[in-house]
Design a protein around this nucleic acid. Structure first.
Lengths: 342, 342
DNA sequence: GAATCGCTTCAAACCGCTTTGGATGCAGCA
DNA sequence: TGCTGCATCCAAAGCGGTTTGAAGCGATTC
């Protein structure tokens, strides 16, 4: 059932039917009702391919997931972020196009999306320092929103980010207030923007209390359980081990916990741990009471909001770049406590 | 730059240019080279929207991810599966369309995809027992491949699955051979097809050795760290605790390990653990040597293969349904050992 | 020399929708 | 009565490709 058939069935022209269904004013209300009823009755759905060609809009947005050859292979937060973004898209009748590409052809992928006209805009994931994608997208005139920020990029652009610096600053201050002075940082890879900012927040909090950051207490690895375990184990084996550790994710935090428990330490009594909790739906920090004290920020919500921002940018391309900074909550769980005086 | 412009620039008709670029035989080879060169020089890429309308093919496949209101919110294996599938798609110039929808509108989503013509086929994720999606897709005539199988569905359909039954059967046999007789099963939710099959494999191995499965040693929950921890803790607190435990995923296995270590047991000596390892890129079972003994099967590879199967089904709709069963490897790690005689 | 054939090429229709630029009819108004 | 204006509706021209049917043309065949 297509528009023409429906039109002849109604004894109307395709023009009128199209206008009736799309809410244009130049059509009699009774006619419109007749058309709408018939469309429903015959289960008419306009062909998306035709709409796209006729309007020149793709009604789709792209998410290009780079597959790094070495690091951060498939980031586990993508799933939740995309779930959030997907909610926004389906509410607005947009499609979500996912491209999973090796990062050496990322450039070509964006250009292809533009010149072939598959999408109206893209979300940029996992920005790095001086991320080359930002100038590229600006150059080819593709609307975009960055999830995160790119340190070093000066021209304004659209982004939505969590205040990672402030989150880790507050977490560190919280530990300092509990009397901890030797605080370890088990960070993600520090070419990722968020990891840089977290470290800055951590260092800022320390220096504000006249404590010099100790390189032996700062690790930077992939955010896996085993990397967290190893980094924490190394720190705990130091002559002056930390009494508290900040971990950059739930998963690495689980490694840190295993290292601590393996060393015979009890969480919240002998050692304090704070994690950053992306609030992933398959990786809950406890069900009712949080297990870990955590800086929490929902990746899913970020996905929803970033997608809304992108649709807005697509609709109003000439409005200036939008920016939004989300604050993380500090959730008090059972993994922190005052420093033990032994 | 579109086809018509390119054609006039070359002094040819759009017909010839189109044919030259699409490899049709009825065009002079020298002409073709001229066209291809010009296309490259002017950076011509045919407009996807136009191709889609003209050919009637969407050149896209859909992945509909149901957001269950209660359980298994965003399955962590999706990310890797989709990464694998994405590789296949980009190799074949197909787009991947992702719909994340509440499961009560899943039905409408599939119908919409069909009638609006956005995709040429779909991958069905996480099949349940008697999954209603299979008859639905058959009814509306949408090509599909199921990742997994749906127990209870009798008519043949396309699927690609891991031999979950056999994997857990072998794992159980492996433990039996080591002398274990009290073996716990920390399973996923048993309305999911794979969980049913794993349990069957486990029970089959036991009964083949004349051991009756003990309900107290069989748990079925979401596959989270904490659920694994709780289930294992409960088992270990039994008067006759298990000496070995099978866990349905890496994540729940980590919970099992925590419970075991919390009870003062050493892995591989006091207790044996075998997990099922989906070989997720962000959740490696060790880097060089595997930590856990595991039944391993790459979800990513499954994604690649399922996508290939789907593209094949789309290309040859009348060939009979394809089916493919992948075997899991049994990887020997450090978490298993002979039963300790104490 | 005319008919035939294969190789190339082209004009035009088509995919299914949107949108422009009229038409048509009728009421209001001078 | 004639003209204007408004409310409706329609024919036709896109959108940018693919594909059908036919034509041009030199070589071959009879």
């Amino acid at each position: 059932m297509n528009l023409k058939e429906l039109a002849t069935k109604l004894g109307l022209s395709p023009t009128t039917v199209s206008r009736a269904l799309n809410g244009y004013p130049e059509v009699n209300e009774t006619t419109r009702e007749r058309v709408v009823a018939a469309a429903r009755r015959h289960n008419y759905h306009p062909n998306t391919r035709a709409i796209r060609l006729a309007t020149g809009r793709a009604m789709a947005v792209g998410h290009v997931i780079p597959i790094a050859t070495r690091h951060e292979i498939v980031n586990p937060v993508f799933a939740d972020f995309i779930a959030g973004a997907g909610e926004t898209y389906s509410r607005n009748d947009y499609d979500m196009l996912l491209s999973v590409v090796p990062d050496e052809v990322e450039d070509a992928t964006y250009r292809g999306l533009k010149s072939k006209g598959n999408v109206d805009g893209v979300i940029v994931h996992a920005p790095r320092m001086n991320d080359p994608r930002i100038p590229l997208l600006r150059e080819i005139g593709m609307p975009f929103v960055v999830h995160g920020r790119a340190t070093g990029t000066l021209d304004p652009y659209c982004w939505l980010d969590v205040n990672n610096r402030r989150a880790f600053q507050r977490a560190t201050e919280f530990l300092l207030d509990l009397g901890h002075t030797r605080i370890g940082l088990v960070n993600g890879l520090e070419f990722m923007d968020f990891a840089i900012r977290r470290r800055t927040g951590y260092e800022d909090a320390l220096t504000a209390r006249s404590l010099a950051p100790d390189p032996a207490l700062m690790a930077s690895h992939e955010m896996t359980e085993i990397a967290g375990f190893r980094a924490a184990s190394a720190m705990l084996a130091l002559p002056q081990p930390p009494t508290a550790i900040l971990a950059s994710s739930m998963i690495s935090g689980m490694g840190v916990r295993r290292a601590a428990e393996g060393a015979g330490l009890v969480l919240g009594r002998d050692i304090s741990i704070i994690i950053h909790d992306d609030d992933l739906s398959y990786m809950k920090n406890g069900e009712d009471v949080p297990i870990f004290t955590a800086t929490r920020s929902s990746v899913r919500e970020a996905g929803r909001l970033a997608a809304e921002m992108l649709l807005d940018v697509i609709a109003h391309p000439d409005a200036g770049p939008q920016q939004r900074l989300l604050e993380a909550e500090l959730i008090i769980g059972q993994s922190t406590g005052p420093v033990s005086r032994t």
